[in-house]
């Protein structure tokens, strides 16, 4: 019989929280970046001469919409590596 102490419960909760944070946090940026990339594809198909400008704007916009995902990544990393019971 393995004895489960408070420390192990804290560790397990931190791991579970990290997984949940990353999983739910990835939904928003995924949808947002995909939408931006799709619209950029449409734009490039319509005006191929502006492909460079459209790609640049798309990258900056994607980076902005990505930040919530990055926050959840940072929180997940904190939970995994910093929370030590």
């Amino acid at each position: 019989m393995v004895e489960i102490t408070g420390a192990e419960i804290i560790r397990a909760a931190a791991m579970l929280g990290a997984g949940l944070a990353m999983g739910f946090g990835a939904i928003g940026p995924g949808v947002g970046e995909g939408y931006a990339a799709g619209k950029a594809c449409e734009g490039v198909a319509r005006e191929p001469e502006n492909a460079g400008l459209i790609t640049r704007t798309m990258l900056v916009g994607q980076a902005v919409s990505e930040s919530t995902g990055i926050y959840s990544l940072v929180i997940a990393l904190l939970l995994i590596f910093v929370v030590k019971a």
């Binding site: 930040s67 990544l73 940072v74």
Partner: peptide, 16 residues
């Protein structure tokens, strides 16, 4: 905060 954490998170996440 978002400006600096974006770079940090991307690079650290990629490295890990």
């Amino acid at each position: 905060i978002s400006h600096s954490f974006r770079l940090y998170g991307n690079i650290l996440g990629g490295a890990i």
